[in-house]
Design a protein around this nucleic acid. Structure first.
Lengths: 145, 145
DNA sequence: CGAATTTAAATGCAAATGCATATAAATCGA
DNA sequence: TCGATTTATATGCATTTGCATTTAAATTCG
């Protein structure tokens, strides 16, 4: 470990990742806000819950998907319930837990958000990199996990 | 705009960027916390302020560097002042403003944080990608800005 | 010059976050 | 079986954030 040293490519790659990801996410958030829509974290949650179908999904299964701590997941669900976008359905097979199930209003919200999100992805990713570059980027980033 | 559609490479690249950046930053934050050190945003601010030397740097010049909104920058400086890591020096050429100047304690803190940060960069970036891959990653990410 | 506008920075307040802990059901083990 | 432990989720409280607004100095322009 002594003598470990960080080279210039490493610094540049990290810096780019740190800065670019923040800038892009901020731009997406700004687009949502401009369209009077909720934030990216709501989208991510709604999408995972919608994909789970009528059965819904357990909060603890949502945690690794959303990369959020447990308490944040719980409170995000609170807000989604409060906005009538999901229901917390009682969970028969485990009375400690619940299932998050999307409502029609939730589906509608997610669809409206996707319209904006899609435009962002086109503008901030698809138009800036060629197909092969996008594939390379994804591949390199995946090696970091 | 009608007919615009997002292809699979775009989705994958976005997803990777979104997920990977969050995961990596979280890991760095966790490393700081484990070492009883403050967060990445403190590091970034201390570094920019330290680089500015004895003259210090104006808060409004810090905003684009840190990619933070004005009020967040102001309050981050509050906390740094409060921890004796920087001083808010009166600014003679513009009485509305101030200059953020690092203190010896601030320099020391930044140096101690860098030891941890460097290990993270080595572990999460340098060890996972080859030199050429790191260069490619940085280059692709830079095209997104 | 002097009123109107712009810019730098701070702040009051409501909402979100982080942390530790609480609650309560499920599972494990003697 | 029953107390001990683990797991799922929620929540109280302090800190941080986001937003809108305030304060005050600098700049613009008739």
């Amino acid at each position: 470990m002594l003598g470990m040293s960080i080279d210039n490519e490493t610094t540049q790659a990290w810096q780019s990742l740190h800065i670019t990801s923040r800038a892009l996410i901020e731009q997406v958030e700004a687009a949502f806000k401009k369209a009077d829509l909720p934030s990216l974290s709501w989208y991510d949650a709604l999408w995972e819950i919608e994909k789970a179908g009528e059965e819904g999904i357990r909060p603890n299964a949502l945690i690794p998907q959303l990369l959020l701590p447990q308490y944040q997941t719980s409170r995000l669900l609170d807000r989604l319930v409060n906005a009538d976008l999901i229901d917390r359905v009682v969970c028969d097979e485990d009375r400690r837990g619940c299932r998050a199930v999307i409502t029609p209003k939730g589906k509608d919200m997610r669809a409206r958000m996707w319209i904006i999100y899609e435009k962002c992805l086109d503008e901030f990713m698809q138009k800036k990199l060629g197909k092969d570059e996008r594939a390379t980027l994804a591949q390199l980033l995946n090696k970091l996990r």
